[in-house]
Design a protein around this nucleic acid. Sequence first.
DNA 1: GATGATAATGAGAAATCTTCTCATTATCAT
DNA 2: ATGATAATGAGAAGATTTCTCATTATCATC
Lengths: 138, 138
Amino acid sequence: MENQDIKKAGLKITLPRVKILTLLEKHGGHLSAEDVYKILLEEGEEIGLATVYRVLTQFEAAGLVVRQNFEGGQSVFEIDSGDHHDHLVCLKCGKVEEFLDTTIEKRQEAIARKLGFTIKDHALVIYGYCDKPECNQD
Amino acid sequence: MENQDIKKAGLKITLPRVKILTLLEKHGGHLSAEDVYKILLEEGEEIGLATVYRVLTQFEAAGLVVRQNFEGGQSVFEIDSGDHHDHLVCLKCGKVEEFLDTTIEKRQEAIARKLGFTIKDHALVIYGYCDKPECNQD
DNA sequence: GATGATAATGAGAAATCTTCTCATTATCAT
DNA sequence: ATGATAATGAGAAGATTTCTCATTATCATC
Ligand SMILES: [Mn+2]
Ligand SMILES: [Mn+2]
Ligand SMILES: [Zn+2]
Ligand SMILES: [Zn+2]
């Protein structure tokens, strides 16, 4: 249940928080703060955009969601399943695919070690065109 | 000479363009539009921030510079040497290191192929702490 | 279940980064 | 040198995100 996750994060169980977390779980994909805001409005919820931004940032700090900064426009958020992964983004239709490549992950560690960096996080996003007919070719 | 690069891009040789390109070449590293603007002002140039943004975007389109979207804050620009590379960024001091790993590059191709994507571009940024004493640890 | 200290919310203002508009000025082919 | 056209600079405006603060909700305690 979402309520336990919220409580564990040291946050009070409020309607906006439950609605936002439930929506992200139900949706499963990548949503911007404004996406979340609009969907909840359409569902008849009373919520403020500032609250959505605030809560998503709190959820991120609590490890409940992950923020992705794809190029251009807004950040998007997704449930933190615990399994790190990277992304492919279609420049035409916006479709997002996920992948995890242990070879890449290991190489990153080696590179950081060689250059004296302690890795805290990383972001690998491949931009291109997906295989849908209307997206193919430049 | 910068002038030829600008001309080849189909752009007129103007003082702002020459100054911006020269500064990026001289500096060698990663500069935000505002960095460029402030440095040129300090050097006594008369230039507008809008021009800096406009010109950097034109240079990017022309393949003269590359834009990097590191998380938080402004985009930064660097001369496009033609050699693609990725980045490590220190979260404490902002230091940026560059690297190129052919293993990672090849794996990305394989992943895109498997998922039906045609790669147009990619961004790999490793965030962490560099080996300077004041940056080490958390 | 009622009470109250405290945290959370929502609306709008504001901050931040970037692009746009448009009158003025510079470039460059002729 | 001239003129068509492109570029510039200042400020307005757009886009995204955060902040402020008065009002409201939560929840530990009674
Ligand atoms: Mn994802
Ligand atoms: Mn670089
Ligand atoms: Zn697509
Ligand atoms: Zn550092």
